[in-house]
């Protein structure tokens, strides 16, 4: 046999082996399909058994113990999964009843939160956060230091929804772990912690050693929380900082919580070289300013950046200057389409 033929033979055998593996894989897939179909049927049967029980429990016809008797020992994890989905649709007293029902099964889940497998830990933390966050708060809090960023984020989002300032502090202490996540998501998470977190957020906003992105997130969260006490501090940030995202977020914040005496830095930033900062400044000016700012807002409409022009035009309507937009339309000037669009925004479609 030539060396070439030996190579050919080796290749043919390798591929044949591979093919055999794939055939085994395919047969396994078919087996999986059959098994999954059986599992789905089992699920359906269990859910059909539990659903009326839960409804009876919620209407007071049955007790927690009655329902628990219907859950087999091997079924507890399935039952928790079912309860978790059910609980997400409920609020108030009904949700509390479900949490009481789930309590007997949660220790298994708390153990799973320490599993070596990250998706399994993530799932356990999520279920605990829905069905037993109060008693297992510390388990979820420990997950903030989980090696998997995904598990840590699930824990953070769960804790953020609780009205416990100590958890808020724990999240903020580990905020660097979440820096890669989108700003929107971080802002929404922080603001869901409620007003108790505002002192910590104010500290972050004012901390010049902190990275600007984190300070910008803090500013946006304070805006969502409508923190009226932060106005002076925000105006101070506008005086001293130069970073685009931080300035834009602080201007958005000031647009909500500011007062007319904060207008000076806002007016100054309407002339910034950066169009993002200018656009945010015009947005804030529209909310805080009055008719003395109409001419500045009017000048913004002619800005080269369409984003600045849009914010300035919206600002004019907020500052009560619709008549200027009407004049623009009547004069048929280059920005008349913008004026028409902004005026139409205020009318019902």
């Amino acid at each position: 046999m030539t060396s070439q033929n030996r190579i050919f033979l080796f290749l043919a055998i390798t591929i044949a082996i591979l093919f055999v593996f794939v055939i085994i894989f395919a047969v396994f897939t078919l087996y999986l399909r059959l098994r999954n179909m059986r599992t789905a049927e089992r699920w359906q049967r269990m859910e059909a058994k539990w659903e009326p029980q839960i409804l009876d429990l919620l209407t007071g016809v049955q007790s927690i113990e009655d329902v628990q008797k219907r859950v087999g020992k091997q079924e507890s994890l399935y039952f928790l999964d079912f309860l978790q989905r059910f609980a997400q649709r409920l609020r108030g007293a009904e949700a509390t009843v479900l949490k009481q029902l789930a309590a007997a099964y949660l220790p298994v889940l708390a153990e799973r939160a320490k599993d070596a497998d990250p998706p399994r830990r993530a799932r356990a933390i999520r279920t605990l956060s829905i069905l037993g966050l109060e008693p297992y708060g510390e388990t979820v809090r420990a997950a903030l230091d989980d090696p998997s960023p995904w598990v840590a984020m699930i824990a953070a989002r769960a804790l953020a929804g609780m009205d416990h300032p100590e958890y808020a502090e724990a999240i903020l202490d580990r905020f660097h772990r979440f820096e890669d996540w989108s700003q929107n998501l971080l802002v929404s998470m922080l603001s869901s912690m409620g007003p108790g977190v505002t002192p910590a957020l104010r500290r972050t906003l004012g901390d010049r050693d902190e990275v600007p992105r984190v300070r910008a997130v803090a500013a946006d969260a304070l805006r969502d929380l409508n923190d009226l006490a932060v106005g002076d501090q925000a105006a101070g940030v506008l005086e001293t900082e130069t970073e685009r995202d931080l300035l834009a977020a602080t201007l958005r914040l000031l647009g909500v919580v500011g007062r007319p005496d904060h207008l000076e830095p806002v007016r100054r930033l309407c002339r910034s070289d950066d169009f993002v900062v200018r656009a945010s400044a015009f947005g804030a000016l529209g909310r805080l300013g009055g008719n003395e700012d109409w001419s500045l807002l009017r000048s913004g409409i002619d800005d080269d950046s369409p984003w600045v022009a849009l914010q300035a035009a919206r600002g004019l309507t907020e500052a009560g200057g619709e008549e200027i937009l009407e004049e623009l339309i009547a004069a048929g000037r280059s920005r008349s389409i913008l004026a028409r669009e902004i005026l139409a925004e205020g009318r019902p479609v």
């Binding site: 050919f8 290749l11 043919a12 591929i15 591979l18 794939v22 894989f25 395919a26 396994f28």
Partner: peptide
């Protein structure tokens, strides 16, 4: 040997990969 290996590489390997894709979906 070449004929066998050509068939294996061009067709059997391809079939194996397609089956694997269906299995991945499954």
């Amino acid at each position: 040997a070449y004929v066998v290996v050509f068939f294996m590489v061009a067709f059997v390997f391809g079939v194996a990969l397609s089956i694997a894709a269906v299995a991945l979906e499954e």
